[in-house]
Design a protein around this nucleic acid. Sequence first.
DNA 1: CCTTGTCCATAAATGCTTTCATATTTTTTC
DNA 2: GAAAAAATATGAAAGCATTTATGGACAAGG
Lengths: 335, 335
Amino acid sequence: MTIYDISEKAGVSIATVSRVLNGSSNVSGKTRQKVLDVIEKYEYTPNAFARGLGLNTMKTIGIMCADSSDLYLAKAIYYIERKLRAGGYDSILCCTGYNLETKISSMNLLITKKVDGIILVGSNFIYENDKDNKYIHDAAMQVPVMLLNAALDSPNVFSILSDDYASTYEATLQMIASGITDILYFYNSRTYSGKKRLSAFLDAMRGQGLANEDILTLLYRGSHEDISAMAKQLTAFSQSGGVFHGIIASDDYLALGAIKYARENGLRIPEELSVLGHNNSMLATCCDPELTSVDDNLELLCNQLTHALMEVLSGNEVPQKTVFSGKIIKRGTTR
Amino acid sequence: MTIYDISEKAGVSIATVSRVLNGSSNVSGKTRQKVLDVIEKYEYTPNAFARGLGLNTMKTIGIMCADSSDLYLAKAIYYIERKLRAGGYDSILCCTGYNLETKISSMNLLITKKVDGIILVGSNFIYENDKDNKYIHDAAMQVPVMLLNAALDSPNVFSILSDDYASTYEATLQMIASGITDILYFYNSRTYSGKKRLSAFLDAMRGQGLANEDILTLLYRGSHEDISAMAKQLTAFSQSGGVFHGIIASDDYLALGAIKYARENGLRIPEELSVLGHNNSMLATCCDPELTSVDDNLELLCNQLTHALMEVLSGNEVPQKTVFSGKIIKRGTTR
DNA sequence: CCTTGTCCATAAATGCTTTCATATTTTTTC
DNA sequence: GAAAAAATATGAAAGCATTTATGGACAAGG
């Protein structure tokens, strides 16, 4: 069933059918209804490929993320997909892993498939060395690129992020204010945000004149879901002389690792060890005691990002960079 | 840059360029190289829409799931996407929620977009009343439909699932064998699998001649991530007279709710309360004690499912229904 | 009678694949 | 070694199913 069949059965030209389909105003009410009736009767739906060819778009957005099964990224994808669909766009999902080559080839694939825009979910897409960000600059020459939780200064690239620096700074100050001065920052280097958070922590500690020489930080190197490995690494760190009564973790997984470490070493939380996480994921409410965590309001970020993309695609101006502030959700793991 | 430009610059016809592009053998080595050089020089990539129009496919698969941020579903999507991409297919993601109307319209949308196949991730897509499954039967007339963790007998519909009945039956027997006879089945009705599990539990209990009249079951009605609400409901149930020393939960979230309930009521696990979950998600290793859980080997299921779909699309025969067995991962919450 | 505006059809454009026919090369045969 | 047969390489042109620019017909208004 093609537009020709419909035009024939309705006794009009294919142009008129197309006008009806696309809601053009230049069709009389009578003709429109006649065409609609035929369309309905034969359950005709226009061929998406031909349509794509004619319009040079199929209203699809490419979503790239390293690992869609990560709690945080999965939530982001969920919010973004929902909002895109509501705006009439489909999403092509691309899980790239953390390897640059794969990211580049996925990017090219999406562009070849003629998506209308690309969303990079997660700060791991931005590299310190700007040469490595070439693939993003290049892609942005073809289609708008949106960055969630990362920023890049480039034409046709738009960044929406939460102010990681500020919230970690604030969190560190709060922990210091609660009387803890020997704080360990436990992190996982992969991300751009992770680095922001680390420097916020360092700055906050130094700002308070604390332990100038040996501020404690520990980089976790294992699988990002392996809670036991995290606890193990903390135990080893402690046994090799690390002394701390507070842990600020760069995500909630790591914070759970800290809780496990405390349990295994008989430390009471928060009396003997304070723990603070990041992302306020569902993990924060499924441990005991419940986890104090920084909430960056992911749903808001995602909605804004998607909205901005749709604005760009409609030819409207949007800011290059939008920053929202997070807040600390106080629960049982801190004093 | 179109195929015409390339053909002109290479001094051949567009048919030849097309043959080179599609790896047809009927091109001489010399000509092929000449064309490839021009393609490379101008960084030409064929227009995907025109290609789709000619071939009537763009090598994309529609993935539908209720909620891509659910731990289990997110993992499944991750495995499936990865395998599809390796096979040269893209994935369009559709998060439908749990509402039938939305599922139907998403399904239609995917078919309109001319996907090559549809994967339904999660057993909530199958309804007890087969009339409600009409949308699947209909879709299967257009493209192959794959079901993960559910089964439906219909042409062009293929089911891959784990044997929920068997593993829950086995789990129940094990708990009984450990000396616990008053077991509560704590579940969440949404899914087809959930029901299989429930009936396995009931059959196992009855088979052991236990509590014929009042086998304990409790349906959880809150948000599927709200651990506190689960604990609360269990506390209420217990206070209103429910007596149990074991809980079998239909997923790991609910099992965490059970652990929280135990903690709030001062019950030691597993001495005073045994807890068993389902899905062996990462939650199982992030609580204390770690959760005994049924593992259905999701990665295997997803790989098989994706493989089967690609086989079908290549015109090969595959079984209508494939069942794998799960296994119980014993950890600290059971004796 | 001329203008203006509404409605609709014709035809061109979109960029590829593929069939069919033809030209060219290679192989076979005597 | 030449003619015939077979295999291989290439081009022309017809799809594929839309959108949209152009222009014609007709009606109403001045």
